[in-house]
C-alpha cells in the first residue's frame, strides 16, 4: 500500500527536533513514525502522521521547508526471511530502494520504503 510521509529540513543543533515536534504537538497531530537522516550540519526529519494535510500546513506556517511524498508501506510477519522475500521481489523487478525504515511489534512488522517506481513496486508485491 501507499503511505504519505512528510519530510522537513532541520539544522543539526540542540533543540531543533524538539521545536519541530512541538509544532505537531500543539496542532494535536499524532506521529506514527519518525526517522531522522542526518548529514553534518543539517538533517531531514521524515514523519508519518495521522493527518498529513494538517501537519504539512502547520509546518509551512511555521516556516519549515516541507515536502510530502508517497512511499511504499509493506506489512510483513515478524519472522526470519520475511523482509528477504520482499527485497527479492523488488530486485527481480529492477526496483531500487533509496531509503527504508521499519519496526516490529507483537509479531507483526511494518516497513516504509522509498522506491524509484512506486506503482511498479506495488504491482510486484501483489
Amino acid at each position: 500500500m501507499k503511505i504519505k510521509q512528510i519530510s522537513v529540513f532541520v539544522q543539526n543543533e540542540p533543540g531543533r527536533l524538539l521545536e519541530f515536534t512541538d509544532v505537531l504537538n500543539k496542532a494535536g497531530i499524532n506521529m506514527t513514525s519518525l526517522n531522522l537522516a542526518d548529514v553534518t550540519d543539517y538533517g531531514i526529519v521524515r514523519v508519518i502522521v495521522d493527518d498529513t494535510e494538517k501537519a504539512a500546513s502547520v509546518l509551512k506556517e511555521n516556516k519549515y521547508n516541507v515536502i510530502v511524498n508517497e512511499l511504499l508501506c509493506v506489512d510483513v510477519s515478524d519472522k526470519p526471511g520475511a523482509l528477504h522475500e520482499i527485497l527479492v521481489k523488488l530486485a527481480d523487478n529492477d526496483l531500487n530502494i533509496s531509503y527504508m525504515y521499519g519496526f516490529s511489534k507483537g509479531g507483526h512488522a511494518s516497513l516504509v520504503l522509498k522506491v524509484n517506481d512506486l506503482e511498479k513496486a506495488i504491482a510486484a508485491l501483489q
Binding site: 529540513f9 531531514i44 509551512k60 521547508n65
Partner: peptide, 15 residues
C-alpha cells in the same frame, strides 16, 4: 535558506 519548491526527502539530492 533552501527555496521551498526544491525541498526534498533525499539527503543525496540535498547535498
Amino acid at each position: 535558506e533552501l527555496n521551498p519548491d526544491y525541498m526534498t526527502d533525499s539527503v543525496t539530492e540535498m547535498e
